[in-house]
Design a protein around this nucleic acid. Sequence first.
DNA 1: GCCAACGTTGGC
DNA 2: GCCAACGTTGGC
Length: 162
Amino acid sequence: MKSFWLLKSEPSAFSLEDLQQRPGQTEPWDGVRNYQARNFMRDRMQVGDRAFFYHSNCDVPAIVGIVSIASRSYADPTQFDPAAGHYDPKSTPDEPRWFLVDVHYERHLRRAISLAELKARADALPGFQLLARGNRLSVMPVVAEHWETILALEDQSAPTGL
DNA sequence: GCCAACGTTGGC
DNA sequence: GCCAACGTTGGC
């Protein structure tokens, strides 16, 4: 059973355009250092799952495209590298603490669906984690109903004022 | 730049 | 196990 996800990235660090330009349009989703997010990648993601690519902490926070999960989970190599920004001295190759999956570019949405628009349509997305108060999770599941609802917005125009 | 929300750490 | 301190996230 395929599942749906949402992956956040700050576009100043790694954008959907960056992914699109990578060799093979594929990139290890490294640097995740949150246990809940790790568990989703390590235990729940399947090759072929699809995910929304969300740009966070930028001028217009928005879902901008779709990626697919391109590998099973494996140990995040950046945790072992003291020179890497996400080095974890408590992690060892024998007992890695952090895992990742490879993600593959699928496409841009025909228009970005902004956080403001998603909030304006919250009634149609009951329980959507991205809209939960204080939400900071960078890897989260998306139920099929929400996936379809959001995809259907692509071919509608944004509400006035957004 | 501000600040609320949240997760982690470490002293006790 | 509690909880204060701290660091990070991310919208605004």
